[in-house]
Amino acid sequence: MTRLRAEGLTLGYDDRTVVANLDVTVLDGRITAIVGANACGKSTLLRGLARLLPARDGAVYLDGRAVADMRTADVAKVLGLLPQTPVAPDGITVADLVSRGRYPHQGWFRRWTDRDHDAVTRALDATGTTDLIDRPIRDLSGGQRQRVWVAMALAQETDLLLLDEPTTYLDINHQVELLRLLRTLNAQSGKTIVVVLHDLNLACRFCDHIIAMSDGAIVAEGTPADVVSAELVQKVFGLDCLVVPDPVAGTPMVVPV
């Protein structure tokens, strides 16, 4: 049984349909990467899965129930998302921001509890941001900032975590660091992770499952070794390339020709 899936999902903005009639199954306890060229609908699909975009047709199911019929506060306890461009209020400190991840677990009148405290502590620990708690977000480097946002999403303590292009604007070192962090989280807590990525090599290296999209449709799906080939890269990105084994991990590596 899979916890998050979509059936016949159609999504769009205004009068434009971006993805049409998609069936997606997110593997429990795995890291899934959604890859594809710019404007292929990968972020749209992720936003649809996270109920940020209402379905035009079809539905997203979480634990067997249609997400559209669930209370958004209940979904927030199970499904977290790191948006592509989150906004930090001016001057907010790390501790304050990460603590706001506890929102869905707090009621209108309920005060800060030990559970909230523990969740935020674990989130800070896991992302290595404990030393930063008194610092304002705007003073942090891009890599630190992204880890703080991940910490906020972790503090939400959801079993499923979706991330929309979390490595954009990061240099290669911090991209790898962030993906390692996701791997660690997945290994330690069995968290199901779906991440939209631009870099196919990093997706192959760090993810268990790849969903390749082109023009709003899924063109291939499976483990990196099964899916990524020169033909697929040609089809999805329009790039002539060789696919060779990564010298370190043995996963597929795309080398343009």
């Binding site: 209940d74 461009t85 930090a88 929102y103």
Partner: peptide, 23 residues
């Protein structure tokens, strides 16, 4: 004062606010 709670989520942008379970 009651609405301060959703306001704290809204400050993070609409996507984050919805993710956190507000409308």
């Amino acid at each position: 004062v009651l609405l301060q709670r959703p306001l704290r989520a809204l400050e993070l942008g609409d996507d984050a606010a919805r993710t956190l379970g507000t409308r």
